[in-house]
Design a protein around this nucleic acid. Structure first.
Length: 320
DNA sequence: CCTTCGTTCCGCCATG
DNA sequence: CACATGGCGGAACGAA
């Protein structure tokens, strides 16, 4: 079981605070046991959320036991942030704790200095202000969330759910994360992938124009797919296609292809005993070595190591 | 690990 | 003029 610490400061946005409680709190391991222990903590016992006052059960030292700390946004960007909270975040970062902000929680992270030199995102309406206040932070408002390894930031409140599901996937694998997503009635992965609202104001419309293609890719990834194959699917020239794809999905076509193929490979490694060679075939990687190279690059470990890690969880389920 | 060869990406410019 | 589209070529990347 892993431990989640949620930072509750005065003026916290209630939605941001409860998002991780719902996602992590409802996550179950294959044996039915809770996957996370959650602690809401902050410097003072009572805080105001704008609409109601709230009792904060734990103090900041509770963060010392957390594997992951979630930093929700505050209702006002000018709200002073308690120095001891910033210090607690810095200390946790030094210990190697994962720290993730939701929405304008990125401002709290930035104030602690932990975003310096990193790429980050936040609510799109606040992105410009974040970049202005913290020039050392590379702000990209076009992403659902940015994963720097130890430090993560997510965009608007709903993107916080995507990010939390991603954290579940990193901790327990795609299978457990998929179950959590179902419980929350959320797609494990949005059709738009990493894209947020790239072109306002008809983001919803333009985004959906690639939804069909992304599904088609999911169904056909076993084949050898070139970029011009994809462009033909949507009847665009290769040049125009890659431009629009990047714009709306947030990564290049090839990056996306790798992304979905690795995800499929992860799922197959977790849930089947297929030899890696066959997984390479089914996911459209031309060869075993290509899969291994890509997998290591993307997931950080070899396919076999990945399978071993999550095999433990599978056994739990078989036993019960 | 390196090398070779094809593919992809992206700035630039032309076209409509 | 602003905008969408697409072709070209070199640099970067990826497959084997």
């Amino acid at each position: 079981m892993k431990t989640i610490g949620i930072l509750a400061l005065d003026g916290v946005i209630a939605f941001d605070l409860t998002t991780p409680i719902e996602v992590f709190g409802r996550t179950r391991l294959p044996d039915g046991e809770p996957a996370y222990a959650i602690g809401v903590c902050g410097p003072v016992r009572t805080i105001n959320t704008g609409a109601f006052d709230m009792h904060v059960p734990h103090r900041l030292d509770w963060l010392k036991r957390a594997d992951t700390i979630i930093v929700p946004g505050l209702n006002t960007l000018d709200m002073p942030i308690p120095g001891e909270a910033l210090a607690a975040l810095r200390a946790a970062a030094k210990r190697g704790t994962h720290i993730a902000s939701i929405c304008v929680g990125a401002f709290v992270l930035a104030a602690s200095g932990l975003l310096d030199g990193l790429r980050a995102t936040t609510h799109w309406a606040a992105a410009r202000e974040l970049a202005r206040r913290y020039p050392n932070v590379t702000v990209d408002p076009n992403l659902l969330y940015v994963d720097n390894g130890q430090i993560l930031t997510s965009a608007g409140a709903a993107a916080g759910i995507d990010m939390c599901l991603n954290l579940v996937r990193c901790d327990y694998g795609a299978r457990v994360a998929a179950a959590s997503a179902r419980a929350a009635v959320m797609p494990l992965e949005r059709a738009g992938g990493q894209a947020q609202f790239i072109d306002y104001p008809d983001a919803e419309h333009t985004k959906s124009s690639f939804a069909g293609l992304l599904e088609w890719i999911n169904a056909n990834m076993a084949r050898t797919l070139s970029i011009s194959d994809l462009a033909q699917q949507v009847t665009m020239s290769v040049r125009h296609f890659s431009r629009r794809f990047q714009q709306q999905v947030g990564m290049t076509p090839l990056q996306w292809l790798h992304h979905v193929r690795i995800r499929r490979a992860q799922l197959l490694l977790e849930t089947t005993d297929l030899p890696i060679e066959q997984i390479a075939t089914q996911t459209g990687f031309g060869s075993l070595t290509t899969l291994r190279d890509r997998f290591k690059l993307h997931a950080g470990v070899s396919p076999n190591a990945y399978r071993r890690t999550f095999r433990r969880l599978a056994h739990l389920q078989v036993r019960n």
